[in-house]
């Protein structure tokens, strides 16, 4: 099976002011695969994930060094000339805690279309239904689309946040510990969802849960103190890690 690169991180350093949070990271993201990032708390997983959609631009004093090349066009998205707003229309993100907007379920999913200036009701309505169906939430909410999203359960809210991201047809979806605030049933639903999502989207996910990484991902990257320690196919990482640190971490001997 032929795989192609969707993105390539090359010699990436990232600084919060003077603190170097990522040290010389190079990693390739395969198209329509799930890449998991694991590692102990504070090792820089979130920091790396937020480089992909330039979320760090929102805060003063943050600095990137190195490149992230996005394919097919092969442009470096960390280039200051690249508009982060355009970029974020192509790269969606789901956060650790569900963060639905203080709007109705319908308007939450329609948000991405509305900020793009789309106003035709028929287009929005269709896209909202399609996205909610794809996020396996449609049947649960179809009778209350105009109720406030904050009335949904945590797991439903998280799937709503996924649906809202799907509605903008992103090329890559970034997940930052999407299930850490959810119970096992809701977690399972999200994991199943990721399985279907990778048919259409490239997925990068951060997780603290080893079983989850093993279950859902095709590739796994292990980070430690801002450095990439090992990156390989998930089965290799979990059955036959080459670096001792990785083995210690996945067997739970530290972290």
């Amino acid at each position: 099976m032929v795989t192609t690169f969707k993105a390539q991180v090359q010699n990436l350093h990232f600084y919060y002011g003077t603190v170097e949070a990522l040290k010389n990271i190079s990693i390739s993201i395969q198209e329509k695969k799930v890449t998991a990032m694991i590692g102990p708390s504070g090792c820089g997983k979130t920091t790396l994930l937020r480089c992909f959609n330039r979320m760090h631009d929102l805060y003063p004093g943050n600095r990137y060094e190195g490149e992230i090349t996005l394919y097919p066009e092969g442009k470096n998205i960390l280039d200051p000339k690249v508009d982060p707003i355009e970029l974020r229309m192509r790269i969606g993100m789901v956060f650790q805690k569900p963060n639905p907007f203080p709007k109705s379920i319908y308007e939450n999913v329609a948000y991405g279309l509305r900020v793009r200036g789309i106003t035709q009701k028929s287009i929005i309505g269709e896209k909202v239904e399609e996205s909610l169906r794809y996020a396996a939430l449609w049947d649960e909410v179809k009778d209350r689309l105009y109720h406030l999203a904050s009335n949904l359960s945590g797991g439903q809210q998280q799937r709503l946040c996924i649906a809202r991201t799907l509605a903008i047809d992103p090329e890559i979806i970034l997940f930052d510990e999407p299930t850490s605030a959810l119970d096992p049933t809701a977690t399972q639903k999200i994991e199943e969802l990721m399985e279907t999502l990778k048919e259409k989207y490239t997925i990068i996910t951060v997780t603290h849960n080893m079983q989850q990484a093993a279950r859902v991902s095709d590739y796994t990257a292990f980070f430690y103190l801002g450095e990439l320690i090992e990156f390989d196919k998930t089965e290799n990482i979990f059955t036959n890690p080459k670096v001792k640190k990785t083995e210690e971490y996945i067997t739970g001997r530290f972290g």
Partner: peptide
């Protein structure tokens, strides 16, 4: 995180202020 959710959808500063922060 609520603002970040909006930015992550490709919203501008102004859209985020008007459509998310004010509500």
């Amino acid at each position: 995180p609520l603002r970040e959710g909006s930015y992550a959808m490709g919203a501008t500063h102004f859209q985020t202020a008007i459509r998310v922060v004010i509500p």
